[in-house]
Amino acid sequence: MPLRTPEQVRNYFAQSGVSIADWARARGFSVVLTRMVAAGQRKCLRGQSLQIAIALGMKR
């Protein structure tokens, strides 16, 4: 399965009707950090940002 780009992640949330905040809270992630990862503003090399990127399909 190919990795998602930040644009594809934003489209996913727009089409699914689930907010980024609800998605993040349901998985125990920081809402602010999830927004930053989804926008492509983080490198996501370690820690929670990496976990978020993996859950969003942006990293393996």
Rank of each mutant, 00 (worst) to 15 (best):
T5G: 08
P6R: 01
L3N: 05
S49D: 13
F13A: 10
K59M: 01
Q48G: 11
S16N: 07
L56M: 07
V37L: 06
R27T: 02
T34V: 11
L33A: 14
I20T: 14
V32C: 14
E7Q: 11
V37A: 08
R46Q: 09
A24F: 05
V32D: 14
V31Y: 02
G28V: 00
P6D: 12
G17N: 01
A39D: 14
A14D: 09
K43V: 10
S19K: 05
Q51P: 03
D22N: 13
V31R: 04
R46F: 01
M36Q: 15
T34Y: 11
S16I: 00
A38F: 06
I54C: 04
S30P: 08
R46G: 03
R42D: 07
A24L: 06
V32M: 12
F29L: 03
S16F: 01
G40P: 06
P6S: 11
V37M: 06
L45E: 14
I20D: 07
E7T: 14
Q48W: 04
R27H: 02
L56G: 05
I54S: 03
W23P: 04
R10S: 15
L33D: 14
A53Y: 01
S30V: 08
R60A: 10
A26L: 04
C44F: 00
I54P: 00
R60C: 04
R46V: 06
G17A: 01
A53P: 06
N11R: 15
Q15R: 15
I52T: 09
D22R: 11
Q51I: 10
A53W: 01
R10M: 15
R4P: 07
Y12H: 12
A21H: 02
I52Y: 02
A21V: 06
G40Y: 03
T34S: 13
M58S: 07
G28T: 00
R10K: 15
A26G: 09
V37F: 06
R27S: 05
K43H: 09
L50T: 09
A14P: 08
C44I: 01
L45C: 13
S16L: 01
S49A: 09
I52C: 07
Q51Y: 05
Y12F: 13
V31C: 03
Q15P: 09
F13I: 03
V37Y: 03
L56F: 07
V9K: 04
K43P: 07
K43L: 13
Q41G: 13
S49I: 03
I20M: 13
A39P: 13
I54K: 12
L50G: 05
K43C: 08
A14C: 05
A26W: 00
A26E: 08
E7K: 11
V9R: 02
V9Y: 09
